[in-house]
Structures are given as C-alpha cells and as structure tokens.
C-alpha cells in the first residue's frame, strides 16, 4: 500500500504528466473551437430548407431501393445499366427511414450526428496521452537511474513493476472516465446552446456509452503496451520508436508495397484492423476471393488484449532479470 501511495504521488507530481494534461486540454479546446466556430441555432428558414432536402433524399432513396431490389432479382427485367449499378450492393443502405431532417442543417453543430466521430477522436487523444504518460513513467526513471533508488528501498522487482503498472492504469482509467464525461458533456451543452442536440432517444446513449468505453479500454491497452515496451527498452524513446517504426514500417509501408506489387491486402495482418474491429464492434473487409469477411469485435479485443498481455509479461521478465547498471 505504501508503495502504491508513493507511486501515485510520484505520477501526479511529475511535470511531464502535468504538461501532457495541459496539452490534452488545449487539444480539446481546439477541437471545440473548430467544431463550434460557425455553428449557430437553426433558424426556421434553415429548418424549412433542411426538411425539403430531406424529403427529396428520402424520395430518391425509395426509388433507389426499389430499383436495387428489382435489379438483383434472378430474372430481372431491369436495364443492364441498372443491373451493373446495383450489382453486389446492399439495398438496405437506401433506407429512407434513416434520413433525418437535421442531417441537412447547414452551419449547425448537430450533437447526435457529430458526437460519434468526436468520440473516435477522443479515443485517439486518450490513447496517445496514455501512451506518452505510461512510457515516460517507467522509461524516465530507468534511464535516469532513479529506479535504482526505489529498488534500494523495495528490492522486490516484481512487486515494483506490477504496482507501478497498476497505479498507472488505475489513475489513467479514473482520469479518462472523467475527461470523457467532460468532453461529451461540453459538446452536448454547446449543441444545446449554439447548435442542435438532435435525436437523443432510443439506443443513442447506450451506443454512445458503449463506443466511449471501447475507446477508453483501447487507451488503457495502449498505455499498458507503452509501459511494457519502455521497460524492455529501458527508455521512454524505446516505446516511441517502436510505435513510429511499426506505423511507418508496417502499417503504411507494407500497405504501399502490397499496392505496388498488386497483391491483395490481407487485413488480418495489420493491427489497425483489430483496433477498428474492437472500437466498431466489427470490421468488414474484402479478401479478394470469397467476398466480405468480418473481424468481430471479440476477435479484435482478444488480439489487442493478447498483445498487451504478451508485452506486459515480457516487460516483467525483462525487469525481473536485468542487471541494473
């Protein structure tokens, strides 16, 4: 308990942690400013225009849906152009009931439409924030030699490693929940005052909370991985280097190479596929042969958690066995 208290004190006292919080709030502020810069409460004229546009789109959707269904019939009498146009298309996308008037409000921040995208950004912000905090929490201590001072007091390395990680993830979890609530709350208030809240009934809030929690868990998994890599590399920069190297070398580089040699991309080879699958509860991709395949949300979670567990275990054994010079 003493060690946990000491580590929490150390984490909260670090200037880097405070600096990152300031940066995070600055980025939040910038995001709010960009989203709200030209937003205003919708006037009656804006509503009238939006409704008219929505009606036109619904009418077009009904027509497209009918044409799509007819073109996909086995003995379709639709023209060849229509059959080509709607080949392998999911006719369900032409669902007129999904068209909302507020989608066509121009210059208005509509909370219900915009917040899912903003929550994706929130997840990215928190993941990067947690990554940097976690990597430096152990990396800076290892590279500066400060960890030796701690181990002279608490020589049980396993306990020190696990306690530091536990305190780190616990503190980040609490902060992330609070920040997420603030983030969503601020946008909701801004929409209510200078925009439009939109349709918040039905499954809206449960789905939004689900999406937010998935993002928070992703941020914690990222933090644990950064902690482990920095432990193995004995430096904050080790985690940053691995991250940048993987991103550029594999995620971007391999995709480019696949494209250059006309090889079909194998999405399961890329970690981002599992990230998307986890956050969106499924990732549909085309393998070039059998049609659409899906990486489920469960598979995404299993891969990400498995990777984190592997790295954390590797960090544990590295920390436990290594000579500290």
């Amino acid at each position: 308990m003493n060690l946990a208290k000491a580590e929490l004190n150390r984490l909260l006292s670090r200037r880097f942690a405070k600096l990152m919080m300031v940066v995070l709030f600055a980025v939040f502020g910038l995001t709010v400013a960009v989203m709200m810069i030209e937003s205003s409460r919708p006037s009656d004229e804006a509503w009238a225009e939006a409704r008219q546009t929505a009606t036109e789109v619904r009418t077009q959707n009904v027509r497209d849906h009918q044409q799509c269904v007819e073109a996909q019939l086995p003995d379709s009498e639709a023209s060849p152009e229509l059959q080509d146009k709607f080949r392998d298309v999911d006719c369900g996308v032409f669902d007129a009931s999904r068209v909302k008037d507020e989608q066509f409000l121009s210059g208005v921040f509509v909370f219900s439409d915009e917040i899912p995208g903003l929550v994706y950004m929130l997840a990215a912000y928190l993941a990067f924030f947690g990554f940097l905090i976690s990597a430096s929490f152990i990396g800076a201590e290892m590279s500066s030699g400060g960890l030796i001072n701690l181990l002279l007091w608490r020589p049980q390395r396993g306990t020190v490693y696990v306690t530091k990680l536990g305190v780190l993830l616990g503190a980040l979890a609490v902060f992330n929940v609070g920040f997420s609530a603030l983030y969503i709350g601020v946008f909701w208030i801004l929409a209510a005052t200078t925009g439009w809240a939109g349709n918040l009934g039905g499954e809206f809030w449960p789905e939004l909370i689900d999406l937010t929690l998935r993002g928070l868990l992703l941020a914690l998994i990222t933090s644990a991985c950064a902690y482990a890599i920095a432990t193995i590399g004995r430096h904050t920069a080790a985690a940053l280097g691995v991250f940048v190297g993987y991103l550029i070398g594999w995620e971007l580089g391999a995709r480019l190479v696949f494209e250059l040699i006309n090889l079909d991309l194998n999405e399961p080879l890329f970690l981002t596929s599992y990230v998307v699958a986890w956050v969106n509860d499924g990732f549909r991709y085309w393998d070039g042969f059998d049609g659409d395949l899906v990486i489920s949300g469960g598979t995404g979670a299993a891969v990400l958690l498995g990777l984190a567990a592997l790295l954390v275990a590797g960090g544990y054994f590295s920390f436990h066995r290594r000579d500290l010079t």
């Binding site: 150390r10 006292s13 670090r14 200037r15 880097f16 800076a140 201590e141 500066s144 030699g145 400060g146 030796i148 001072n149 002279l152």
Partner: peptide, 9 residues
C-alpha cells in the same frame, strides 16, 4: 551506489 540519480523536477 555510485552517482545517485534523482528526478530533476
């Protein structure tokens, strides 16, 4: 042990 290291901040 040798040159002790502390957090500068």
């Amino acid at each position: 042990v040798e040159s002790p290291a502390f957090f500068p901040g």
